[in-house]
């Protein structure tokens, strides 16, 4: 698990992870927000179906791919989480689907 330090303040916002309500702070990335919401495994790979989680958080490794507002394979660590954003993990959906 990851936790914010107790004296950290910031504007709270709401988004969803796989349809369930979650909270984040303004300025956090989608990948950070997922980790802080206790969601670690964000996808399974298109090659073997192995589970993966964010690894570098700096846009290099492409492990934190998630579906954001209906668009698949977005790098969660490069997108700032927004109020009302719909984030979906890609567990069991390793390959990008057309139209998503």
């Amino acid at each position: 698990m990851f936790q914010r330090l107790p004296d950290i303040r910031g504007d709270a916002l709401s988004f969803t992870i796989d349809g369930k309500a979650a909270q984040a702070r303004a300025g956090e990335t989608v990948a950070s927000a997922l980790l802080l919401a206790g969601v670690e495994t964000c996808r399974t790979t298109p090659v073997s179906g192995a589970p993966r989680a964010p690894y570098c958080l700096m846009g290099v490794c492409f492990e934190c791919l998630v579906t954001i507002d209906g668009r698949g394979n977005q790098q969660g660590c490069l997108v700032t989480v927004q109020d009302g954003m719909r984030v979906e993990t890609q567990i069991g959906r390793g390959k990008r689907e057309l139209g998503r």
Binding site: P46, N73, R93, R96, E97, L98
Partner: peptide, 22 residues
Amino acid sequence: VTEKTAPFLDAPVSTVRQTDEG
């Protein structure tokens, strides 16, 4: 070449094809 995609094309087109990997 694009990222790996769920199968959508069962036969090759002369300018677009999908590999077995996706």
